[in-house]
Design a binder for these strands. Structure first.
Length: 471
RNA sequence: GUCCCCAUCGUCUAGCCUGGUCCAGGACACCGGCCUUUCACGCCGGCGACAGGGGUUCGAAUCCCCUUGGGGACGCCA
């Protein structure tokens, strides 16, 4: 189809996928999905010095976690050098590029000069009209127009014009023949039929150069949309100082990928007052019109809140997959199944992350709960001996183990012992979980199951009996 | 230094294009309260912003200009 939207995400594998990069990946992916278009993944590894296989793997890993799939690729620029070479030659023979033999030192001096006379540091065009042939150490420079201006018709920011005098004859091929960034992206985007480029606004100043390249190559200029950057709390560019930057670090901290995606998209894009979005809603509603123009500060607290919200909204079955690795880490080998789902159900409203959820789930899987010392000292007292036993006996005789009958038993026990609900419930909580904080008493008992509850109750009775007599 | 971008509560943002319905709405955080067997969830309430100055207009958060502030780019990095 002629008007199919084709977007792309072109990370350079020089580190992990950070929050900002993840966000532009998500924007491109969402836009492609929203428009029923195609999304291409391309690894920009022309800088052989800094690119690593580790980083490539880290990027795949992060995209996999975020649930961003691509329709084409991954392409690797390092495998496309002959394509670039061909285009570079074409640019030279068409008079749009030329060999330059100026040394880096000479160029440095030119830049100094230019700066001194109050302008932008630029190459002065020494070799521009020399018509040099290739020779050892020569680079290829683009012959940029000296006059006029280049207009970016940005889908997000509107029109941005650059005077061509701001540009210099930038290098498109290094002296070893390898392509430079601006050239490689343009060639790739042309040959991969990319027609929509959504990227960080730190690329705005590259855009006129790229547009000129498109024109020199006789190719159609794609749509550009520059999204604002993600800043740290001090409004400076996000960096290690601001804490975790790698998206997968958030997986390890117990975040839900849908929450991460939701959060990142909402940072810079809006749909009225809506804050919570499922993946499908995002695909349905995402558009370029509502991407903001100002940079946003990364706020971990908001991420946490939205994560809690996604946990609350998800089904226990779905959460189980995410939770299991964290249980395993605690040495808990839970199986997917009704017991686990029941457990998760009780933990959902009180877990902001999967780590919290795993912590909260621990007592459900222990052979016997580990009594918190203060908790047992305060609540497991001789006065509870009879009520506790009565509770256990009552439950043992229950045909239907449900909330209704549990309530009845509790009522009876409270009446017989002359104790209020709290006086009974809290000790029971300690007996069953070892702690003073847990899910609601009945839902927790139901999730734990009749057998465990009764045996834990008897354990508590024994514990109280064995207690050295007070006073 | 030069060029480019941006500017609403502490933060994310709605509203701005198509001026009046906005003494500016929502969310996170924070502070109260309610609910309650603990912790949460939930609910109710509070705190809190149109950067400043000029215009245009009957009327400006919304349009224009300037200032200030912030960010980005100026590589044989991407």
């Amino acid at each position: 189809m002629e008007n199919t939207i084709i977007t792309r995400f072109p990370p350079s594998p020089t580190g992990y996928l950070h929050l900002g990069g993840a966000r532009t990946a998500i924007f491109n992916w969402l836009y492609a999905r929203h428009t029923n278009g195609r999304f291409v993944l391309r690894i920009e590894d022309t800088d052989m010095q800094r690119s690593t296989q580790e980083s490539v793997d880290a990027i795949f890993d992060a995209m996999d976690w975020l649930g961003i799939d691509w329709d084409e690729g991954p392409y690797f620029q390092s495998k496309r050098f002959d394509i670039y070479k061909e285009h570079i030659d074409r640019l030279i023979s068409s008079g749009n590029a030329y060999y330059c033999t100026c040394t880096p030192e000479q160029v440095d001096r030119m830049r100094e000069e230019a700066k001194k006379s109050g302008g932008k540091p630029k190459y002065d065009g020494s070799c521009r009209e020399k018509n040099l042939q290739w020779q050892e150490g020569a680079v290829v420079r683009f012959k940029a127009p000296l006059t006029g201006s280049t207009l970016i018709e940005d889908k997000i920011r509107g029109n941005i014009a650059f005077a061509n005098t701001e540009l210099d004859d930038f290098i498109i091929a290094r002296s070893d023949g390898s392509p430079m960034y601006n050239l490689a992206v343009v060639i790739d985007d042309i040959t991969m039929n990319i027609n929509t480029i959504i990227r960080g606004d730190d690329h705005i100043s590259n855009t006129p150069k790229q547009i000129l390249l498109y024109q020199a190559l006789g190719a159609k200029v794609p749509d550009f949309g520059h999204v604002p950057m993600v800043l740290g709390h001090d409004k400076s560019r996000l960096s290690k100082r601001h804490g975790a930057m790698s998206v997968t670090a958030y997986r390890d901290m117990g975040y839900h990928p849908d929450a991460m995606v939701n959060f990142l998209v909402r940072l810079g894009w809006s749909h009225g007052d809506q804050e919570f979005f499922t993946r499908d809603e995002l695909i349905e509603k995402f558009n370029l019109e509502h991407i903001g123009r100002s940079a946003g500060v990364f706020n971990p607290e908001k991420l946490l809140a939205i994560n809690a919200e996604h946990i609350r909204a998800a089904s226990s079955e779905a959460l189980a997959d995410h939770l299991m690795p964290f249980l395993k880490e605690k040495g808990i080998d839970a199986e997917a199944g009704d017991y686990l789902y029941g457990v998760i159900e009780t933990l959902k409203p009180r877990s902001k992350t999967f780590i919290e959820m795993a912590d909260g789930a621990e007592f459900y899987f222990q052979e016997k709960p580990v009594y918190d010392e203060k908790a047992s000292a305060k609540f497991l007292k001789p006065a509870l001996l009879v009520p506790m036993k009565q509770l256990a006996d009552g439950m043992a005789g229950l045909a239907e183990f449900d909330e209704k009958s549990l309530e009845n038993i509790f009522k009876q026990v409270m009446e017989d012992a002359g104790l209020g609900f709290g006086k009974v419930a809290q000790p029971v909580r300690v007996a069953l979980t070892g702690k003073t904080v847990s899910p609601g008493i009945f839902e927790m008992i139901l999730a734990l199951g009749k057998e465990k509850v009764i045996s834990r109750l008897y354990d508590a009775v024994q514990f109280i009996e064995k207690m050295p007599a007070a006073e």
